[in-house]
Amino acid sequence: MKKLLGTALIVGMVWPMLAAAEPVNVKDFALAQRIADKVAAGEELNIFVSYHDVSNEFAPQIRAGVERGDALDKVAAKFIGPVGADADGQINEIEALLDTMDGLAISSVSTDALAPIIDRVVDAGIPVITYNTDNPDSKRLAFAGQDLIQSGREAGKLMCQVHPEGKILILTLDAAAQWSLDRESGARDALAADCTGTEVVQTINTGTDPQEMYAAIENAMLGNPEISGLLSLECCTTPAAGSWVDRNGKAGAVKIVGFDLLDQTVEFVEKGVIQATIDQAPEAQGFAAVDLLVKFLNGETIDNVDTGVGIYTSENIAEVN
């Protein structure tokens, strides 16, 4: 099985990997005069990086990337956003800061809700890029991050490799969220295309509280004892699925593919309970967001940046600090 997995590792951590899109340059952008003056005078640039929920587990890592960007010469980068995913809160904050920002990077919890504010900021002559979660319908200049459908597809492929046949449950803490729907469709596509021996029985919506998640997985497994594969779409149901499989002595019999590198996830990969996990490199996303804006303001032509997916199995999990 490990041999099989080896072939999946080719994607690796590729950064920055330029995707095909339209490169943009500041010459083609109606930059606000005050920002142009600041750039010309070599003053410090105020870059704001707005995240859709600064209280979730990625926020600290993305913030770390933003802080790395803040350390760049003549850059003051700030990490902002609402506590708890809240589109209104995110919009209000951006509106309040509009006159002080020289560049905005934004990860939007809701594409439709945030496109108008992105367009307003762009119309005010302030460059906007998206990171982590894209908003392709807006006037944003470029995107730095991982393609959600693509990452879902990667997860599906990995599942197919470790678990070519049998019944699968998909786990997500918010089945109705756009990111979840994107990853789910990517995963289902990949499974349907490459893995005709598998069947996705149900998508389980676990809720966000750790207890709730575990209970939901427990109930679902009891209701579907023939399940042999668990595909988690995010950070948090991954270790919960690991805990259930580990505690019920099903390690190896029920395969798990999930996302991210929470402490428990790393432990379970080491123990062989979780077969594979996909890292989104949130720190790299935070840094890329600042870096792209600074480059753009300084006249460089910029384009979408793929911060890549990192795939970890028991073979390479030791690389995680």
Partner: peptide, 18 residues
Amino acid sequence: LSIAFLPSGQAGRTGLGL
């Protein structure tokens, strides 16, 4: 008991809406 059961918790998520 919750953190003793699933030895992990996160301030933005644990017990939200409970």
